[in-house]
Structure formats: structure tokens, C-alpha cells
């Protein structure tokens, strides 16, 4: 802001004015939107018969490729959807096939059964994430990974409990796999929308910005972007981990209780 007014001051005095802008391009869509707004503003000036010249230098992501950003955020959203649907499907398929009743009659603590069945799906998705990361995100799309790979794996593991919790809730209220599919989409769309995966959070309406604090995906995406693009140290990732663990823990506990009632 300071530089902006300084530049305007110079300009008013008739001298050559210089406008320096530094944008954080690791917050990709945010930076892009801001930049194009500024271009428009400055271009309006340039229509006046004034000597003005725009120079932009890109320090990060020089070719302004959006695919390296899109690949990551898309993967994060898909992880969410997969865990929700897989966890819910495991339980609902048992309801459909009638094996659920058999399960209830086994001399095993229902808590162990729920935990085991939901963890198996988390494990499947974790395996998938590592493959997708290696072959697609880092391989095909050449997304930079500046931070720790294991920090990302740990963050994903913590986050998967948030999704699994939603999955358990969906399973508790659905009767068949069809309902699982419908309900999952219905729940996931606002969560993904509020996470900043598609629209920058700071460009949202203030009410939506507040609501986005309750989307565990928001912390997951922010944390992952910090790890991948900014190379943030593990110790500095604690706000994102905190958000993911708190919301994830609460969601999983809720889902666990909800489906535990059916046992």
C-alpha cells in the first residue's frame, strides 16, 4: 500500500513514477486474479496519452503454467471424495448383502470392527495417493515438491480420518450404495467449494470465508501447498496440522458414534 501511494505521489508531481508489486504466486489462483486486476487498472491509465510502461517479471513458475497447481488441488479433492465413498460403501454394502447382521452377531467388540473396516479403506487410499503422487503429480505434471514428502504423507493420513468420519456418517444414514453416491456428492460439494480448491478463499464473501474455517479440506490444501511450493519446514506447518487433526478428529468421532449406534 505504501509503495502504491508513493508511486501516485511521484506521478502527481510530474516525475517518473515506479510501481513495484510483489505477489505470492504459490497461492496461485489468488495471485493470478490480483495480477489481472492490476493489469486492467494500469491499462486504463495507459490509454491516456501518458508515458507508461508495464514490466512484469515472474520469479516463480515463469511460464505461468496452471497445470502444476491444478494437478495437486484436484488430487486433494479426489482423495476426499474417494475416502468418503469407499468408507461409506464398505459399510453400506454389508447392509445390502446382509453380512452386516452376521457381523453384529460375532463376538467381537463393534468398535474394533468399525475401526478395522474404516482403516482398511484409509490404507487403500494412502497407497493410491502415493502412486498418484509419484506417477501423475510429480511425474507427468512436474509439480515441484520443495518440502518434506513424509510431512505430506502424515498430513494426508491425519486428513483421511476427517473424510472417513464423513464416510461413516453417510453410511449410517444411507440404505444402499445409490444413496451413498448421492449423499456423498451433496456433502462434498460445499466442502470442496469452501476449501479454496476452486476459488481463492480471500475472494469469497466474508460469510463464506468464515464458513471455510470449518472445512478440513481448507487446512489440508493450505498445508499441502505449503509443503509442495513453499517448502515450509515441518515445525511451521502446525496451524494446518492443528486444523486437520481437530476437525478430522471431531468428524471421525461423530461418524464413529453415529454408526456405532447401529451396532
Amino acid at each position: 500500500m505504501g509503495r502504491w501511494s508513493l508511486g501516485v505521489g511521484h506521478y502527481r508531481r510530474g516525475g517518473p513514477a515506479q510501481l513495484d508489486l510483489l505477489l505470492d504466486a504459490t497461492a496461485a489462483s489468488q495471485a493470478f486474479t490480483t495480477l489481472s486486476y492490476l493489469h486492467n487498472i494500469v491499462l486504463r491509465f495507459s490509454r491516456l496519452p501518458l508515458p507508461i510502461e508495464i514490466k512484469s517479471h515472474k520469479l516463480f513458475n515463469q511460464n505461468a503454467d496452471d497445470h502444476s497447481f491444478m494437478a495437486l488441488t484436484e488430487m486433494l479433492s479426489v482423495i476426499t471424495l474417494l475416502i468418503v465413498i469407499l468408507t461409506a460403501a464398505v459399510f453400506v454394502k454389508e447392509k445390502e448383502d446382509g453380512t452386516w447382521d452376521i457381523m453384529l452377531l460375532m463376538p467381537v467388540d463393534p468398535k474394533v470392527t468399525i475401526l478395522a473396516k474404516s482403516l482398511s479403506q484409509v490404507a487403500v487410499v494412502m497407497g493410491g495417493v502415493i502412486l498418484a503422487l509419484g506417477f501423475v503429480v510429480l511425474g507427468a505434471f512436474d509439480t515441484p515438491l520443495n518440502g518434506s514428502f513424509w510431512a505430506f504423507v502424515l498430513l494426508t493420513f491425519c486428513y483421511s480420518f476427517a473424510s472417513a468420519g464423513i464416510g461413516l456418517f453417510v453410511a449410517a444414514v444411507s440404505r444402499d450404495v445409490m444413496q451413498v453416491a448421492q449423499l456423498s456428492i451433496l456433502i462434498m460439494m460445499p466442502l470442496i467449494f469452501l476449501s479454496g480448491a476452486w476459488t481463492p478463499i480471500h475472494a469469497m464473501h466474508p460469510i463464506l470465508q468464515t464458513l471455510s474455517l470449518f472445512s478440513p479440506l481448507r487446512y489440508y490444501i493450505e498445508g499441502s501447498e505449503s509443503i509442495f511450493y513453499r517448502g515450509t519446514a515441518f515445525a511451521d506447518l502446525w496451524p494446518d496440522f492443528l486444523g486437520v487433526i481437530l476437525l478430522g478428529g471431531a468428524l471421525y468421532l461423530y461418524g464413529f458414534r453415529k454408526i456405532g449406534k447401529l451396532f
Partner: peptide, 11 residues
């Protein structure tokens, strides 16, 4: 207790 359900519920 042993139980066989109507649809022979098996995986």
C-alpha cells in the same frame, strides 16, 4: 449362537 440369514449372507 449360530444364525443363517434369509439371503445366505456371505462375502
Amino acid at each position: 449362537i449360530g444364525y443363517v440369514s434369509r439371503h445366505f449372507a456371505l462375502y
